[in-house]
Amino acid sequence: MKNYRFRFLGLLLILLAVWLLNISLGSVTIPFTATLSALFGQSVEHTSWEYIIYNYRLPKAITAILVGGGLALSGLLMQTLFRNPLAGPFVLGISSGASLGAAILLMGSTLLGGFLFSDFSLVIAASIGSFLVLLVVLLVANRIRDTMALLIIGLMFGSITSAIVSVLAYFSSAEQLQRFIFWSYGSVGHLSWNQNWMLGGIVLLGTILSILSIKSLNAFLLGENYAQSLGVNLKRSRLTIIIATGMLAGSITAFAGPIAFVGLAVPHLTRQIFNTMEHRTLVPAVFLYGAILMLFCDTIAQLPSSAKVLPINAITSLVGAPVVIWLLVRKRKMLF
């Protein structure tokens, strides 16, 4: 294994820089020195600045790190498990499951008798949705050895979900539809400290499971038969990897909405810097890179010094899609 210490140090420094940039920029202009002194617990000229930084910008930056890192990591897990460069958290149907849960809550609540609506019930509905889809995928995974079949089943779940969502959309009011559409734009800016703790806990668990899977992930690079011949318990390893992905992608989509392209593009971008398939290097590198990209995209989405906020999903797609095309054109084929 090559020594990538300097590149990791570089990534950490960039992460720190983007994090500071993200916190110091926003719709209200706060001088950089004031931001710094607020972060170090010193008094600031205006108490409103302190309030904005502590209760709005800092939790938002933390959410962005968790969302970017977690989605990128789940993308890496999927790409290795399916040995397919185009796999990502969307492909397994996890994100569509969350969308389905959110859609039923936001647009079908009149059908269900209309229960109390809050931000938290949205999180619960989306989690249940992604968890149910994951459960079905797990059941299928135990019966079918072939991961390509699993991939296609995940895609089919996506189609079923979007079909149900459009039926629901047809029957719902304009206001309900608007709510759902806003959720589907994705956002990292509305999480409270408590919600951040919860998301952080789940992302941490998913990351630990990923780290425990590093050895079997490396074996999966050769294919499932070779992996088994190297002593990997296929069923158990696949289960661990799928559960880790479900925890990462499911919880993130539940809290921040479906955020496209981070899971797909970041593993490829990371391999531009770390030219290796070794997961001991890739797992931490992909997490860092995802966090950096998400903080960067969020900084753009905030449109510094204006009161408007762009949908984060649009920004990640605008950044992610050209990157994938560029990689394809330059390398001719997507090396996995």
């Binding site: 011949s229 002593g231 990997v232």
Partner: peptide, 21 residues
């Protein structure tokens, strides 16, 4: 699986999944 992997090594006809190693 892990004990068998210390007894039998395998070379298959299927190509290795990634050639980027």
């Amino acid at each position: 699986f892990s004990k068998l992997a210390q007894k039998i090594a395998l070379v298959l006809t299927e190509p290795v999944a990634t050639k980027n190693l």
